[in-house]
Design a protein around this nucleic acid. Sequence first.
DNA 1: TTTAATCTGTGAACGTAAACACAAGTTGAA
DNA 2: TTCAACTTGTGTTTACGTTCACAGATTAAA
Lengths: 207, 207
Amino acid sequence: MRYRKIPDEAVWRLPMYLRGLLLSLEKSQETISSQELADFFGVHPWQIRKDFSYFGAFGTPGVGYKVKKLSTQIKKILNLHVSHKAVLVGAGNLGAVILAYPGFKIYGFEITAVFDNNPQKIGQKIENISIKDVSKLSLIKRQKIDLGIIAVPRKAAQEVADRLVEMGIKGILNFSPCRINVPKKVKVITIDIAMDLARLPYYIPSS
Amino acid sequence: MRYRKIPDEAVWRLPMYLRGLLLSLEKSQETISSQELADFFGVHPWQIRKDFSYFGAFGTPGVGYKVKKLSTQIKKILNLHVSHKAVLVGAGNLGAVILAYPGFKIYGFEITAVFDNNPQKIGQKIENISIKDVSKLSLIKRQKIDLGIIAVPRKAAQEVADRLVEMGIKGILNFSPCRINVPKKVKVITIDIAMDLARLPYYIPSS
DNA sequence: TTTAATCTGTGAACGTAAACACAAGTTGAA
DNA sequence: TTCAACTTGTGTTTACGTTCACAGATTAAA
């Protein structure tokens, strides 16, 4: 394959494909075709093949893809072949849900530290992790944590992000409904539930 | 303006612009330029002007946009000028967080019904809404509810979605980590936290 | 009234991604 | 060994979205 710029969209879709593959793997399926995968997600098979082709040739003509092999390769592309440690800031209701969320494991994520600024919460444990004072965030420097999850009120989000960047965090999942500014080398993904909900009514014919 | 197909991406960005406008409105700002708005989100001003232009001309050359007027117009475009009622299915930890989430209000959303299948939860109240048996979902037909929020385990998600569609729900916000099949007229947005997190490590140089 | 500064709205140019079509590889049956 | 059925990988075409550049509208100052 000649060199070609990899579309952001292709990278964006890989985790989706990976989820499907891991599900097939659970069902002990050995091989899967682009058609099967496509049906699973409601996309076109050529889209999937094209996306894979940016990263190499993983399949066998006439057969399809080895589920196990392909999922391993996608994990490698996404840098998910090694497990990642994450720090959670904000131990409120949302923080508790995130901590208890079972879905992180299949991607190899582990939340190993939790911080909050509420004195009543500091020292308590949720999901077997004791909540520490956010002013002691530098504690995470000893561990190899490269991801941060922000689940604090909007007004505190930017400050927390700044601190996380100082501590060497490379990627941030932000649940506060606001943009946060970080150096270019740090990747931020913001999840804004209300905004997502606000996208629905456009497609609903008004009553 | 000549007729032109409106890019999905433009629609997608409108709720973002709206959030910025509502924030400016809180600060009693009267007018705002595309440049100001753009700086706020880290995008280009011509992108914003172009996006608006698909829906009409809202600004004044030499002045900018009236914050209040523009936000009203965007709300109208997004069909957010009327408030929307939503039903929540799944009163677990995640459900409780969603119910308590303060961000829905500014877009005019209100969760007016909650369902679960756990007998221990049915009858209890959270946020002053009593949890009802999911088998009695048809109760919502009397109310004018057009949005559904799914916060149940993956295996139950499709079934819940089917029921919601039966009840006439037009849009679904799905927090289960799976695709759900619905008729074309129903719009679904799926939020998969783990998948979003899985998108980060690609951008992190491996250690 | 004139001029300079400001800012919007939009056609056109450009760049990127999706969709297509098919060559080439693989399998299994005849 | 041959042929038919199947599936991948990718160059090309088409569609779409972004960026650009500027005409035209507005304001404020001279």
